[in-house]
């Protein structure tokens, strides 16, 4: 905790510069740069073990027979190896349907919010019009609006149009864009030099052309950030499936996992290995998506965090 940023770090970009004599002198004393770096590497490795081991435990426990679930908690492989739980979970619950539902709902949610947010963000970034400041203020204000406040009326709306009990309420609100992504994408569009658009206007491009043919392709990294963030958010969502879905065939993975816990952990019929296997199945695809789109996640969090 007492460590600061001096000494060994080498920030990239404009901040990188050769070490000043004073810093070099400091690093040369006994217990200098190399030793300290090694110390922090060891500390970070220890912290990593704490963050990683729960995953290891989850996967290992899901591959053990029920009476061994809690046995050998520090053994990082299953003994005995019993992958039967992954077959059993498919018999106990409509896992294929849940997986497909989660992917479909997630894809719809992410696609709609990305396109619509980009559309709106372009409007805020490109045009100068009366009321722009106030309207953009309303975008920022809704970012602070807790979802719980609109839960009941939103349900009543979907109920009024007869769509409760379907998956539509899980994503359809996204066709109107989302404040967070509008903010993110507007920042990105503002970074595109204006003469790029003006040149296209001179060549006779319409405003829709500017958006579709120039702004969107140039904003690809920001679009991917919005897409993966929303995919993740949708994959996490428990509240909306709890509220809107009754038919287990329509469940998403989190809602399904909740049903499995209720039946096989809390209920009178404990089948821990099934609960654990379902937990792994719910988590693993998202981890895979993270590894593919990792830099977009990190970039998105870091930029919005700093910008915000």
């Amino acid at each position: 905790m007492t460590g600061t940023t001096a000494g060994t770090s080498a920030p990239a970009g404009p901040l990188a510069r050769p070490a000043s004599p004073a810093a070099v002198a400091r690093d040369d004393r006994p217990g200098g740069a190399g030793t300290r770096r090694a110390f922090f590497l060891v500390m970070l490795a220890a912290a990593s073990a704490v963050f990683l081991y729960p995953f290891v435990w989850l996967v290992v426990a899901s591959l053990k027979p029920r009476d061994r679930t809690f046995a050998d908690p520090f053994l990082p492989w299953p003994r005995p190896f019993a992958p039967q739980s992954y077959v059993d979970v498919w018999h106990a619950a409509p896992m294929t349907a849940w997986l497909v539902n989660t992917v479909v709902v997630g894809f719809m949610a992410a696609l709609t919010v990305t396109v619509s947010s980009a559309f709106v963000a372009f409007g805020f970034a490109y045009f100068r019009f009366p009321g722009r400041g106030v309207l953009f203020g309303s975008v920022l204000a809704t970012m602070m609006l807790p979802a719980a406040v609109t839960l009941v009326p939103t349900y009543l709306i979907w109920n009024a149009v007869g769509l409760t009990g379907t998956q539509v309420p899980l994503w359809a609100g996204n066709v109107f864009g989302s404040a967070f992504y509008i903010f993110l994408l507007r920042q990105f569009f503002l970074g595109i030099p204006r003469y790029v658009f003006e040149a296209a206007r001179v060549d006779g491009a319409s405003y829709l052309d500017l958006f579709w043919r120039i702004a969107l392709p140039l904003a690809r990294p920001a679009l991917i950030i919005a897409f993966v963030f929303e995919l993740k958010a949708s994959w996490f969502d428990l509240m909306k499936p709890l509220i809107y879905l009754q038919d287990p065939q329509l469940f998403t993975l989190p809602r399904g996992l909740k049903a499995i816990v209720d039946q096989f952990y809390q209920g009178g019929d404990p089948k821990w290995e099934i609960v654990l296997a379902a937990g792994v199945i719910t988590t693993l695809p998202l981890i895979a998506i993270f590894f593919v789109g990792q830099r977009y996640f990190v970039q998105g969090i870091a930029t919005t965090g700093q910008r915000g």
Partner: peptide, 12 residues
């Protein structure tokens, strides 16, 4: 590594 737990759905 530190971010991985944040990719685990809250239900899980």
């Amino acid at each position: 590594v530190f971010y991985l737990p944040s990719m685990t759905p809250y239900v899980a």
